[in-house]
Design a protein around this nucleic acid. Structure first.
Length: 264
DNA sequence: TGTGCACACAATCTTACTTCA
DNA sequence: GTTGAAGTAAGATTGTGTGCA
């Protein structure tokens, strides 16, 4: 069977108990000529086991058929279908928008009229729904089952939709934070690079100064001083006459400058 | 210890919408 | 004003890892 085989689902809206149905989501018929697969599903409590949370058919129902439509054969999705459609009301609600599904390489697609053939309608949350979700996200970035259900009920969404919204929100918040962190690091890197360039230049200046003026030179406070006895250079950030403890370039041994007795 | 389940996350896909030539 | 390509935002899907009973 080709992936584009059309699958029609005939959904009975009867409240007949499942055990009284002849077709409980089993493969009903397959039209070789039109490559159409027809399933008859009851809307009994067993209906919930016929679909996953994305209104896709439980692959188990398709038996050998699902080998050609592996894109939707996902155990986690099947598992998650328990998360919603937990009541008969929700089942009926789902049926209102999911009457005919098409098997395609992308999985099952909702097709309630011919205009939608081959497309998937994407939900756009209303401003109000988004605001509520945002407010909720500010309070807690993850939801427990009860919070999820309550929020879904309040917004007339499926719990799975709320869950997905929070997942995406967390992911995009993290991404945004990563971008911010990255920008901060980039700025730090640029600053350090500038500082390194400045210090290297300073070293070069001092080296050339050392060659031309082999005596002690008091440079500006921000630059370095040179010990007259050993001609080593010292860091000189302090501007007062207090003792300065410095390290000569290329030597970790401290030199004391400012107190004659302490000069070696 | 193995197993199933629920959940979170990363990566990716897909669609709706916007911008711009 | 219209149109189509390109870009972006965001909802949805899929695969994987982890903790827990």
């Amino acid at each position: 069977m080709m992936c584009n085989t059309r699958l029609s689902l005939s959904l009975g809206l009867s409240t007949t108990p499942p055990h009284q149905h002849n077709n409980k989501g089993k493969l009903s018929s397959y039209d070789d000529d039109n490559q159409e697969l027809t399933l008859c599903l009851s809307t009994s409590s067993e209906f919930t086991n016929n679909y996953d949370n994305n209104n896709r058919i439980n692959p188990q129902l398709l038996g050998g058929v699902n080998s050609s439509v592996s894109s939707f054969s996902n155990t986690s999705s099947v598992k998650r279908e328990r998360d919603h459609a937990s009541s008969f009301d929700e089942e009926v609600e789902n049926l209102e928008t999911k009457k005919v599904l098409i098997i395609s390489p992308k999985g099952f697609v909702d097709h309630n009229d011919d205009d939608d053939y081959g497309t998937r309608k994407k939900l756009r949350l209303t401003k109000e729904q988004s605001d509520v979700l945002e407010d909720s996200f500010k309070e807690h970035t993850t939801l427990n089952s009860k919070q999820k259900r309550d929020l879904a009920r309040r917004l007339s969404l499926r719990p799975r939709q709320v869950e997905v919204w929070f997942q995406n929100r967390r992911a995009r918040t993290k991404l945004k934070q990563t971008e911010i962190d990255c920008e901060i690091l980039r700025k730090c890197y640029e600053d350090l690079k500038d500082e390194n360039r400045r210090l290297n230049k300073e070293i070069q200046d001092l080296k050339s100064l050392k060659k031309s003026q082999p005596f002690r030179v008091q440079l500006s406070a921000a630059t370095l001083s040179m010990c007259p006895s050993c001609e080593r250079t010292y860091g000189g950030a302090a501007t007062d006459n207090s003792t300065k403890i410095s390290f000569s370039i290329g030597d970790q041994k401290p030199h004391f400058y400012g107190i004659p007795s302490q000069i070696h």
